[in-house]
Amino acid sequence: MAFLQKRYNDIWYLIDKSGGKPKWIKLGKISKAEAKTVKSRYEIDQTYLKLDIQSDSRITFSECSTEYLEWAKTHKASNTIRTERLIFQVLSRTLGNRRLAAIASEDYELFWKRLKPNSIRLRIAAIRALYKFAILRKYVRKNVGLDLKRPSIPLLPPRHVDPKLIEKALSIMQPRTRAKFEILYYTGMRPSEVLRLKTNDIDIDNRKITVRYSKTNRFRVIPMHSKLVPVFKEIFASKNGNEYLFPGLTHDHQVSMRDGLRKACERADIENLTPYCFRHTFATTVLEKTKDIRAVQQLLGHSTIQMTTRYATALDYRLR
């Protein structure tokens, strides 16, 4: 038997007396209707456990998230893992002992009533990734994260950086790090696309770079800037047989470019410079010189022209 109680500072608690000794579960500052919803879900979950219903695995949220984070160590970037771990720690305080298959989308939505849209989108992405992993492990049959509605956020114009600032950052980087960012700066590729480049994607003789793995799953060929020819030749001269240009220690390829950039920015006293700034600066520079928005769309690998028009907006704003 479970019942609700509202205590200090308008905080709701769920008290479960079915096991003899009362079990107190803190729900937080939520409305009475929301507290009743949690109580109803909790009672259904407990009924499933008593009847031993095996339609889905009985793995709990805490158990699955722990297993997922262990798996992520060899499949995801360290920054992503750090963010997801913090999100799961907060969720586990209330949902940790509940069966993953019995948690509904409404239960998750209680956790971000007062959060900003970007924070909500981060949490939804983490939950969707967790359920995707759980489906592959056959712990659940449905991705509840897909029922969570992501709040819309305004698309801001991409940030153009003064090329002199980028050149300053490049001059301070270590050779291996500089190679990655030079490719980023002279092609406009996404950071993940640069890190996934393989030896057979580079055609120095015909000055072409083939992008096979992209965010939009679109195959494209990019012309090679003359300044990248010596960069690729140096990479090939120092390769040790790995098919990736930038092999990782725990992954087949490196998964993040932020650490190398952060160290260079600290030495050069540069603030607010991210890997995507190199891509944005490339796009606005090409658009300013060619005035051909379709060509920029193809170079960047955008699936729609609407995404590329953001660079035209940024260029107009910069030229005012």
Score class of each variant (00 low, 15 high):
F236H: 08
L148N: 05
R207D: 02
F3V: 00
Y244A: 04
K138C: 01
F111C: 08
G96R: 11
T285R: 10
R150A: 15
L51K: 15
R318M: 13
K50T: 14
I59E: 11
L165P: 00
D201C: 11
S92N: 15
S238V: 11
K73V: 07
R196Q: 15
I172Q: 06
A169M: 00
Y317T: 12
A312I: 02
Y42N: 05
R93S: 08
F282A: 10
T210S: 11
P175C: 02
Y185H: 13
N9T: 00
I172F: 04
L4R: 04
T216C: 03
D16N: 03
K26I: 01
E43R: 02
R150P: 08
R93M: 13
T285A: 10
D252R: 12
I235N: 00
Q5N: 04
K132Q: 14
S78H: 11
Y276K: 08
S65I: 10
S18Q: 06
Y139Q: 11
S105P: 05
R294K: 09
R93L: 14
Y244N: 05
A129P: 13
T83G: 07
R93Y: 10
F278E: 07
L27I: 03
N97A: 12
S65M: 11
V194K: 06
K23I: 04
P151W: 09
Y317I: 13
S152K: 14
A179R: 14
N240D: 10
P154V: 05
R212Q: 13
A268M: 00
L136Q: 15
V286T: 11
T60M: 04
D292P: 03
I15R: 01
P275H: 04
D16I: 03
L27T: 03
K73L: 13
K6I: 02
A264H: 09
G28R: 10
W112E: 11
I209S: 03
Q298K: 14
R98Y: 08
R279V: 08
D56T: 10
L228Y: 04
L100F: 12
R137C: 10
I209V: 13
Y213D: 15
L299W: 01
I209L: 13
G96S: 12
A2S: 14
S214R: 12
M189N: 00
N206V: 01
I30Y: 03
R267M: 09
K76E: 06
K263M: 11
C64S: 15
I44L: 15
A237V: 00
P191N: 09
K198C: 14
F219W: 09
A72P: 07
Y186T: 04
K263E: 13
F246L: 12
T187G: 01
S65D: 09
L300E: 08
L4E: 07
D259G: 05
D52R: 13
Y48N: 15
Q5W: 00
L170T: 00
